[in-house]
């Protein structure tokens, strides 16, 4: 007997499915705000789904639903049992289940965003869950954070430094952050933004459009 199309247990494979984009970063850096901004910017031109990994219950999912940037049914919340990094790195089963549920219900989709629960600098997404990942820092954590590195800062496909509007107030030097990030990231892109001022996070959205286009090109939909 072989796997049939009625069950929910297909192995991950890039063909005929959406790009899965992980968004991680420390608590309060603006992950949920970035997800909302991307939904605002990309919603009109892309078929989207969002999976949130809350530390507490469904707060982030509820925020996104209230923000009205995406159809509420297209947001699923995953609970992580006190361990947000486990759910995106070591045991991704519940997140994969949520991603595939969205694709089954609303597919075909162009992009599924998986937002991690706020965690520390070592938390990164498993390649079994996210095809690409963004790591979000904010300037109020201090301008030393990029220099300290950690897998999130060094390995993410895109590093976003948010809340640049606060830099003068917290004494963070954006030039230092930019130079240090470039050093540890081996040429991978870094974008500075203030989502409070740019509600659509347009520079990030433009980068996402680029990777989604490349993904489509590489894995044409067969659905």
């Amino acid at each position: 007997m072989s796997a049939n199309h009625d069950d929910h247990h297909q192995a991950p494979d890039g063909h005929g499915r959406a790009l899965r984009l992980g968004i991680g970063g420390p608590v309060g850096s603006g992950k949920t705000a970035l997800v909302a901004a991307l939904c605002r910017s990309l919603g009109p031109s892309m078929r989207l789904g969002v999976v949130t990994n809350d530390i507490y219950t469904t707060e982030d999912a509820d925020f996104l639903r209230r923000a009205g940037v995406i159809d509420a049914d297209r947001i699923l919340a995953v609970q992580t049992g006190c361990c947000p990094h486990t759910a995106i790195r070591d045991d991704i089963a519940a997140n994969l289940d949520a991603v595939e549920t969205l694709e089954e219900r609303f597919g075909p989709l162009d992009l599924v965003i998986v937002e991690s629960g706020g965690d520390n600098l070592t938390a990164t997404f498993s390649r079994g869950l996210a095809d690409r990942q963004i790591f979000v820092l904010d300037v109020s954590g201090g301008d030393k954070v990029p220099r300290k590195g950690g897998p999130g800062v060094t390995a993410a496909d895109l590093l976003v430094v948010n809340k640049t509007d606060l830099a003068p107030m917290v004494g963070a030097d954006l030039t230092v952050m930019s130079r240090d990030a470039a050093k540890v990231r081996d040429g991978k892109p870094v974008l500075f933004t203030s989502i409070r001022e740019d509600k659509g996070a347009h520079s990030v959205a433009e980068w996402v459009v680029g990777i989604v286009d490349a993904w489509h090109h590489q894995h044409a939909h067969t659905v």
């Binding site: 007997m1 072989s2 049939n4 009625d6 069950d7 929910h8 192995a11 994969l96 289940d97």
Partner: peptide, 29 residues
């Protein structure tokens, strides 16, 4: 929910008729 996730995971670790037939018999988990 736990059963569905367990079948998803273990089918990739130990591909088998036992797990395929269970997934087909109870598709929602």
């Amino acid at each position: 929910t736990q059963g569905r996730l367990l079948v998803r995971t273990t089918r990739r670790i130990w591909p088998s008729e036992a797990l395929d037939s269970l997934a087909a018999a109870v598709p929602d988990g």
